[in-house]
Design a protein around this nucleic acid. Structure first.
Lengths: 297, 297
DNA sequence: ACCTGAACACCGTTCAAGT
DNA sequence: ACCTGAACACCGTTCAAGT
């Protein structure tokens, strides 16, 4: 890029401003004089940059005004199906967007742009945004199979199932907020996860009700903590502040609150322990499984 | 309300349709003939209902067309501060909207409409929507104080703290998705909750790290299950289908999946147990506290 | 100086116009 | 018949114009 000749670099920079929306169709592009000032080049170079963009159809000269930004030409012929656009590609693009920038960034327009199609073309492959998200969940769950045959020990099984979900939520921070265990979508990979856990618990004296509650509450704990961890990822992305920095910025207001009698007990909390999600996961899982062990005994 | 005379009830009903957006400025209001059919009243009553709305400025007669819905008159003079609009009133209105229609319905425009102000007036009292939601959390947490002095038994304390949060999330289904225990806002009522729990656990041999993890993982379980319950509320509101009805509609596809080998273990789950959130709460809490009891022993 | 309406840059999705 | 761009009815928030 830096090896490009100056007129090319200037042309690309102007093009980038148009792509970014800083310059919009109908606006005046920088004049040759402005270009010479801004980039420190000769008039000949500035003129060549503009005529290049003219030849490429990006700008058009208007007598007595200057170079005007043209409306973008449609990238593809209309009413022709985008070649190779499939439900799987839409879902993959959705996963890529959500992994990179979170669920809030997952707009239909953004996914379509990622695929180089019109927004409405997506609706030929998914019914609506909700169905897209559901399909995304199903697809990523298939990334996390559980071993066959399972470990013999029920505790090893439950630890493995919980750990597998925990890691999956870590790879896809948007996932935790989106899965449901009370209205599970009919996604084979998710049902397989649940079925694997049921098999580990079956025939150990739990009532059918307790078996159901065990499966749901364990998943709920893992999901709940994964939601907190994901919020942390989002907060860092949004504010640029890590949890440590956030606490540091609150420290003075916090210690002030500690003086006021009833809140002084908060001084017994350790902030580093609240930021270590791995240790929180291990602790909460251990308490739950120890409680279950007492029930099974 | 039901004691109002018929013409008043009809006029109110038409007004309600306008407020709901079913009838928009420029639309024709129901004619006298339509009113006699729809409400089963005499022409004189229908005419009185329409002339009442005319006198109130809601409708205006257009010769040869009928009664036309008028644009709403601005409720208050501009650039005059809305009398009595305070941060507390904004927060209260936000809570009312979110309680009634969920967090998705909590738009700045909706809250402003509820208060009869312009949207931008809200920004004089809260910095942005996020701060509004944070203030809402703080306010409702103050609804759920914990008793002083606390019970002597640590287990009774933790059960009470968990139960209090659980009930609070039940009264305000939007709350669970919004609270954070890793970046807690400096809200006295929330900090008091945490401090109360810390006091119950202090001096029982837990390390500072484990004490911190205990407080967070217990809250995480309660919050996680409350999120599931809230999603259930939202799903019923959106689809009009209870969890039972949802499962019934899935039954055939579900039992089909059960036949395919590995998933047959799912038949051991009891759907009614998955829908009983109170029992799920009690089960999960008991497992966690039994696990903690083993650690403290 | 204080307040807020118009405007902007986004959404998801409907629907009719295009091929 | 199939496909999709324009349009609609929403967002949160900026900013400049109003009082």
């Amino acid at each position: 890029m830096t090896g490009d000749p100056p007129f090319r670099r200037i042309a690309d920079a102007i093009h980038a401003r148009i792509a970014a929306g800083d310059l919009r169709p109908g606006d005046r592009a920088p004049s040759t004089r402005q270009i010479t000032r801004e980039w420190g080049v000769a008039m000949a170079t500035a003129t060549k940059a503009l005529t290049t963009l003219h030849r490429e159809g990006v700008l058009a000269p208007v007598r007595g005004v200057g170079m005007i930004v043209q409306p973008p030409r449609p990238a593809r012929a209309s009413a022709r199906p985008a070649p190779g656009l499939t439900r799987d590609r839409v879902v993959e693009a959705g996963i890529a967007v959500a992994d990179a920038d979170g669920l809030d960034a997952l707009s239909m327009r953004r996914v379509a742009a990622e695929l180089g199609t019109g927004t409405m073309s997506l609706y030929r492959h998914v019914q609506d945004r909700d169905e897209l998200v559901r399909n995304m969940s199903g697809t990523v769950f298939a990334e996390a199979p559980l071993p066959e045959p399972p470990p013999e020990d029920w505790r090893a099984c439950l630890e493995l199932a919980a750990r597998t979900q925990w890691d999956l939520y870590g790879r896809h921070p948007w996932l935790a907020a989106v899965v449901s265990f009370t209205r599970p979508p009919l996604v084979p990979a998710m049902m397989a996860h649940t079925a694997w856990t049921v098999r580990a618990l079956r025939g150990r004296g739990l009532s059918a009700g307790d078996l159901t509650r065990e499966v749901i509450t364990l998943s709920t704990f893992v999901r709940g903590l994964a939601i907190s961890r994901a919020e942390e990822v989002t907060a860092v992305r949004a504010t640029g502040r890590s949890l440590d920095q956030w606490w540091a910025s609150r420290a003075s207001a916090f210690t002030e609150a500690l003086d006021t009698g009833a809140l002084s007990a908060l001084a017994h909390l350790r902030q580093d322990a609240s930021a270590d999600f791995e240790a929180l996961f291990a602790y909460g899982l251990a308490r739950h499984l120890n409680g279950l062990a007492a029930l099974l005994r």
